[in-house]
Amino acid sequence: MSLFAEQLAKDAQAVFFNLNEFGELHTIEGRQMVIVIDNDELRERQANSTNPDDGIHDAEILFYVKREDFQQRPAVDSWLTLDGKQYRVASAQEDEISYTIALRATGS
């Protein structure tokens, strides 16, 4: 990645995950992290999904988290605890700076 692209990614990360902008503190797997919840994007992905087996159809939360704050990309169908509630990972994608994770409820 070029120096310009690296700086652009750092700047985007600094704004996007900023607590005064889009970021929110949540507890994931017992650790506080800044994440960005985007349920509008989740609804858009659900509306545009043509594959009922992609995990998005039954997801209820979609969020972004910095890769550096998360140990590794979670596996689909693995368990993840968000704010004390257990979920199954419906999908997990990554880019240069973040993971996009969709979660589905596990029932009562």
Rank of each mutant, 00 (worst) to 15 (best):
S2Q: 02
S2V: 02
S2P: 03
L3C: 03
F4H: 11
F4R: 10
F4I: 10
E6R: 13
Q7E: 14
L8Y: 15
L8F: 15
A9P: 00
A9S: 08
A9Y: 10
K10N: 11
K10H: 08
D11N: 15
A12D: 11
A12H: 12
Q13Y: 04
V15K: 12
V15W: 09
V15H: 09
F16D: 05
N18S: 15
L19Y: 11
L19A: 04
L19V: 11
L19M: 09
E21A: 10
F22H: 12
F22S: 09
G23K: 12
E24D: 11
L25A: 06
L25S: 10
L25Q: 13
L25V: 12
L25Y: 12
H26S: 10
I28A: 05
E29L: 01
E29C: 03
R31Q: 08
Q32P: 06
Q32V: 07
M33C: 04
I35R: 05
I37V: 15
I37L: 08
D38S: 13
N39P: 09
D40R: 15
E41D: 14
E41F: 09
E41N: 14
L42W: 03
R43H: 13
R43V: 03
E44V: 06
R45I: 08
Q46K: 11
A47F: 01
T50C: 04
N51L: 05
N51G: 02
P52F: 13
P52A: 06
D53G: 08
D53C: 09
G55S: 07
I56A: 10
I56C: 06
I56G: 03
I56R: 09
H57S: 14
H57C: 10
A59M: 05
E60N: 14
L62P: 02
L62I: 02
F63V: 04
F63R: 08
Y64G: 03
V65Y: 01
V65K: 01
K66T: 04
K66F: 02
K66N: 12
K66V: 07
R67P: 04
R67S: 14
R67D: 04
R67Q: 13
E68Q: 09
E68Y: 03
D69L: 02
D69W: 06
F70P: 01
F70Q: 08
Q71G: 05
Q71I: 11
A75G: 11
A75P: 07
V76I: 15
V76C: 06
V76M: 06
V76N: 11
V76Q: 13
W79P: 04
W79N: 09
L82H: 00
L82S: 02
D83I: 00
K85H: 08
Q86S: 09
Q86R: 14
Y87N: 01
Y87F: 15
Y87T: 06
Y87H: 03
Y87P: 08
R88M: 05
R88Y: 15
V89S: 03
V89D: 05
A90P: 05
A90E: 10
A90I: 10
A90Q: 02
S91K: 06
A92S: 14
A92K: 07
E94S: 14
D95P: 02
D95E: 13
D95L: 00
E96P: 10
I97Q: 08
Y99T: 01
Y99V: 01
Y99I: 00
Y99H: 05
I101E: 03
L103F: 00
L103H: 03
R104S: 08
R104Y: 07
A105W: 13
A105G: 15
T106M: 15
T106G: 12
T106W: 06
T106K: 14
G107C: 00
G107I: 01
G107P: 01
S108V: 06
